[in-house]
Design a protein around this nucleic acid. Sequence first.
DNA 1: CATATGTCCTGAGAGC
DNA 2: TGCTCTCAGGACATAT
Length: 281
Amino acid sequence: MPELPEVETMRRGIARVAGCAIRDFRRPRSRLQSITITPPPSEFRRRVVGRRIVGVGRIGKRIVLELNSGDRIVLAPRMAGLVLLADPPDRGHLRVVFELSGLAKQLLFWDRRGLGVVRLVSAAEFEGRYGPKKIGPDALEISAAELRSRLAASRRAIKVALLDQRAVAGIGNIYASEMLHRSGIHPAKPCNRLSPPEWRRLHAQMGKVLREAIRRQGSTLRDNTYRPARDEPGEYEFRVYQRDGQRCGRCGRGEIVRIVQAQRSTFFCPACQRDVGRGAC
DNA sequence: CATATGTCCTGAGAGC
DNA sequence: TGCTCTCAGGACATAT
């Protein structure tokens, strides 16, 4: 699940690997299919062992470890991955272990579904793969004007467009529903039908939702996969996500419904997110 | 180019 | 209990 708030929480959780040297890189044996590791483990190992981690950043929903060689390690948890220093949920889904020396002893990549990716890239490759042409401005940093100019011409539904990482980075399926609800915007409204006040509200609520979620250390879903620490769930509280059938707390009148857009669930309140923007011409 | 869709993988939960 | 089926946070390749 990890979206921007969960990945940022994980990044903060491992921040002290900055300054550590990588002593070893290994993949614990597992009955599961192996995750994507590029380049292949032998070359990966050769290029990271003995290097020092000089920076711990985040780009959208990925964690980026900068090495003193100029290479970067990009960790993408995708749907069910975790980046941790210790205490993984179990050993069976532990995919990669970096043995470190310094303030942290280990860095772990754990992934229940195996959709995650661990990638080592040169500076040039990083630019091509994760540069501004591929990944838009971070959702925490983007200005209102930039958000609008990047999306306003699109005919796509706003909920679907918010998931496009080239437009704005870090928003996923859950927080997209949450920020649209707080903005009072119908998720199926085409981007090119949003009014200037709607763009302003969306921008404001985007920042609010993501900052609040980071403060609460993200959110833990029904599958219990993500947690900021052992035995400790993320404490962000959803207002619409997976609350279909319940009364809307915003207007107190509507009942939250679930719809499907682009094969993904969307939750919203038909009473306070009323205008689909497709009314009579 | 912009937009839409199928797929990767494992595990949980529903239904029978 | 145990089987089979469907679905889940993301991102990318491919198709239209």
